[in-house]
Amino acid sequence: MKKLILIPLLLFGLFLIHAQTITALEDSLSQTPTPDARYSETLVKLEQTAAQGVRNADLFHDIGVCQFHLGERGKAVLWFLRALNLDSAHKASRQNLEYIESNQPSEQEEAHEPYLAQLFLSIWNFFSLNRLAIVVLILAVLTTLSLHLLFFYPPQKERGLPVLAVMISAILLLVFGIALGVKNHRHRHNSKAVVIRETELKAQAQGGKTVAVLPAGTVVERKQSGTTSLQVILPDGQGGWIDKKAVELVVPKE
């Protein structure tokens, strides 16, 4: 009984240490203080690294910060979303995104989510793709150990405890396994796009009536791609077509 409790605690502890280790390692790598200016110079260097095909949440975050300070609100949002697509637990990118949104509030953004929804979203964001993978592995090992315990449990003893352990670990494994699948799919097929420069949302692909004017930094869902325009859905559910050149995908098509 004690061993059974100790094993999950040990594994959970290991997971905590892992999370802390990552933070400490990342922080120890940052050595130089933030420069007060010269964002454009930094941006050139960072974009060269990104152009080499490097995908790194910290790199994307820094590009976003530079873009923001250079007045490119749309591009800043785009790069922060790219950082979050790699690591949804990237706190700095999420805070910067919230900061940009708070500077340009709209009717939709002002409406606060219910507390429980916020809590769920926060937990969902905390479990980034790789954290989910680690949790799934831990749960897989736990489920295997619980099943082994159940298989070889002395027949004369009450089997409630190993059955409970199997049930809990198996349910958690299922939940986190599904979450990992969903997150992995979204990571690979992220349909979000960001309006880079102010553009008109039109009712039809060509020659349609202007429905709204989208400011730079508006996040839209890509639905369908035309020759020169892109069919998108706004956060409030409104749909329409916008100029392809005015928008960039969070996950660019290779």
């Binding site: 933030t34 490097v54 790194n56 820094d62 910060v65 790789n130 989910l132």
Partner: peptide, 20 residues
């Protein structure tokens, strides 16, 4: 948030690899 978070300025940027 009250301000834009500063640059992280990592010395290296390892390529992201999904464990899964």
């Amino acid at each position: 948030p009250h301000t834009m978070n500063p640059l992280l300025e990592r010395s290296s940027h390892p390529n992201f690899k999904a464990y899964a």
